[in-house]
Amino acid sequence: MSILGDQGVMSPVFGGSGPTPSRAGPDLPARYQGLSALQVNAGQARDFLAALDAK
């Protein structure tokens, strides 16, 4: 929300994660290396797209 004088304006905020696997690095604990956010959803989306006709 932004406030200008006596007016408040709300704007949408979209937060999320892409299905990119985490990469190894010095700041990433070993238990998180190789994990992928939204892995199940990404698979479902690929299956859905594959089931659509090209028309």
Results as ranks from 00 to 15, higher is better:
residue 26 P to I: 02
residue 12 P to N: 09
residue 48 F to E: 10
residue 34 G to K: 01
residue 22 S to V: 07
residue 20 T to S: 12
residue 13 V to D: 12
residue 23 R to K: 14
residue 9 V to T: 15
residue 21 P to E: 02
residue 41 N to E: 14
residue 12 P to V: 07
residue 23 R to L: 12
residue 30 A to Q: 10
residue 47 D to H: 06
residue 41 N to W: 06
residue 19 P to W: 00
residue 45 A to H: 03
residue 28 L to R: 11
residue 53 D to W: 06
residue 34 G to S: 00
residue 35 L to H: 00
residue 46 R to W: 04
residue 41 N to G: 12
residue 40 V to S: 10
residue 2 S to R: 14
residue 1 M to H: 11
residue 25 G to V: 06
residue 35 L to C: 04
residue 38 L to S: 12
residue 4 L to F: 07
residue 12 P to R: 03
residue 51 A to F: 01
residue 26 P to E: 08
residue 26 P to K: 02
residue 32 Y to P: 03
residue 18 G to M: 09
residue 9 V to M: 14
residue 21 P to A: 06
residue 5 G to N: 11
residue 15 G to Q: 10
residue 29 P to G: 03
residue 49 L to N: 08
residue 20 T to H: 08
residue 37 A to Q: 09
residue 4 L to E: 15
residue 20 T to G: 11
residue 43 G to R: 09
residue 54 A to P: 09
residue 54 A to M: 11
residue 28 L to F: 11
residue 17 S to L: 13
residue 50 A to Q: 05
residue 1 M to W: 08
residue 23 R to Y: 02
residue 46 R to Y: 03
residue 11 S to I: 14
residue 21 P to S: 04
residue 21 P to F: 02
residue 8 G to P: 02
residue 13 V to Y: 11
residue 30 A to M: 07
residue 25 G to A: 01
residue 31 R to G: 04
residue 55 K to C: 03
residue 10 M to D: 15
residue 10 M to H: 12
residue 52 L to N: 05
residue 2 S to Q: 15
residue 53 D to N: 09
residue 34 G to L: 00
residue 1 M to D: 15
residue 4 L to D: 15
residue 52 L to A: 02
residue 1 M to Y: 09
residue 13 V to S: 14
residue 11 S to T: 14
residue 47 D to T: 06
residue 22 S to K: 04
residue 7 Q to E: 15
residue 14 F to W: 07
residue 46 R to M: 02
residue 49 L to A: 11
residue 3 I to K: 14
residue 28 L to Q: 07
residue 9 V to W: 11
residue 14 F to Q: 01
residue 48 F to M: 07
residue 11 S to G: 13
residue 6 D to F: 07
residue 6 D to A: 10
residue 14 F to Y: 08
residue 10 M to E: 15
residue 39 Q to T: 03
residue 46 R to L: 05
residue 36 S to D: 01
residue 13 V to G: 12
residue 2 S to C: 10
residue 54 A to L: 11
residue 19 P to T: 00
residue 24 A to R: 13
residue 24 A to V: 03
residue 47 D to G: 05
residue 41 N to F: 04
residue 33 Q to G: 00
residue 46 R to N: 04
residue 23 R to P: 05
residue 45 A to V: 12
residue 48 F to C: 08
residue 24 A to W: 00
residue 10 M to R: 11
residue 1 M to G: 13
residue 51 A to L: 00
residue 28 L to I: 13
residue 41 N to Y: 06
residue 33 Q to I: 09
residue 51 A to K: 01
residue 14 F to D: 07
residue 30 A to N: 05
residue 41 N to V: 10
residue 15 G to P: 09
residue 19 P to K: 01
residue 41 N to Q: 14
residue 19 P to A: 03
residue 1 M to F: 08
residue 36 S to K: 13
residue 43 G to K: 05
